[in-house]
Simulated scan of single mutants.
Amino acid sequence: MIRRKHYLNLVLLSATAIAAGLTSCQQQAKNNDKMLAANVDTAGVKQYLSQPIIRNIYTADPSAHVFEGKIYVYPSHDVEAGVAENDNGDHFDMRDYHILSMDSVGGNVTDHGVALSLKDIPWAGRQLWAPDAAFKNGTYYLYFPLKDKNDVFAIGVATSKSPAGPFKAEPKPIAGSFSIDPAVFTDEDGSTYMYFGGIWGGQLQRWKNGKYDANGSKTDLQQDDAPAINCKVAKLNANMKEFDGEVKDAAIIDSAGKPLLGKDHDRRFFEGSWMHKYNGKYYFTYSTGDTHLLAYAIGSKPTGPFVYSGTFMQPVDGWTTHHSIVEFKGKWYIFYHDTQLSGKTHLRNVKVTELKHEADGHIAMIYPNKNKQ
């Protein structure tokens, strides 16, 4: 009888231990979830300023606008194409666009599905890179960079009566357009401008003389002591599908009025431009590319020149930062991306955080990874 009681006690103790172990495992799982929710990875290494706004697909290069009282985001749609990473960016092999919307920052995000697909663009070759959008006269316009059948980037346009699409592409790209990263800005007088260009894989360095040089440099470098390559700017005409006049440089200069030089990698333009207007000044923001900073330059005209004024975002996880800036309900926000979800350069996720203008006109520094402040 004593042995039986002892046996039962052992069974009870074992069951209790197993239950405790299960509870411990369950608690550890909950703790892991809490750590992720607190913007910290399970190793406790990285602490993020914000979390991805959507997780069901990979998104990047977010262009945000306020349409019909909501924020609409026009991002790239990253996919695993099975292409090895290289300097030309062939591993960024996007095939369509999804449009996202939200009623409030931090609220629910709606994925409106495919708005435009590669197969529906008559002049398509490959690689739908970072898009932007605009609205005028009852029509929404989606601007997109795409390689044609000769593997040369140009910028196309598609239209819709809804900000969520679907969009129908024009049969040909915009005449006179080239390179990547269109960013479209409409000024208070109704004039609309497109800023575009990106070096290395974006091919801007191959357009030095106004014609495409297939054998041109594969890097962002000109001579180190020569003026750096500038972003391009062109005014759009009333139909929003053509350039109104010639393509010009959106020149960035220093406080002494001199152009930034090619060797100035922490300040000169690389890709990912954006324009917003604040207190009557034009803020031209852009990525420095290989140094992974977001920088800004301020001008008195939408076409520049723009005086370099500093950096405002430290590097994100991944290759570089492609961003947009939008005012919504009295606050300014920056949409950007990193690689938190995948850890892979070509599979990114969009994020958003508040952007603050200082009293002196400068933009406050943003640290996307809190532990790198």
Rank of each mutant, 00 (worst) to 15 (best):
V114H: 06
M275C: 08
G310L: 09
P131A: 03
I99Y: 10
A214Q: 12
Y282E: 14
Q222P: 03
R95D: 00
Y282N: 14
W207Q: 09
D220M: 13
H323G: 08
E246T: 01
L293I: 07
L49P: 02
T321I: 15
I253P: 14
H65L: 10
T16H: 01
D360I: 05
G361H: 11
I18K: 07
V247G: 04
R206N: 04
V66I: 11
I71S: 00
Q27G: 09
D96R: 00
E170F: 06
N150M: 06
T353M: 06
C231T: 10
T339R: 05
M94P: 02
I366L: 08
L236S: 09
R95E: 00
S217T: 15
G361N: 12
L49M: 12
K370E: 03
L355R: 00
T16L: 12
A169V: 03
V247W: 09
A158D: 05
V184W: 04
L22V: 11
S255D: 14
R55K: 12
W207S: 05
H77C: 11
L22E: 00
L36Q: 08
A226L: 13
Q205S: 11
G113I: 13
D103V: 07
Y278H: 14
I57T: 07
A130Q: 01
G201L: 06
R95K: 12
A359D: 09
L294H: 03
W332K: 04
D103F: 05
L100S: 02
G106C: 09
M1G: 11
S342H: 08
G262A: 05
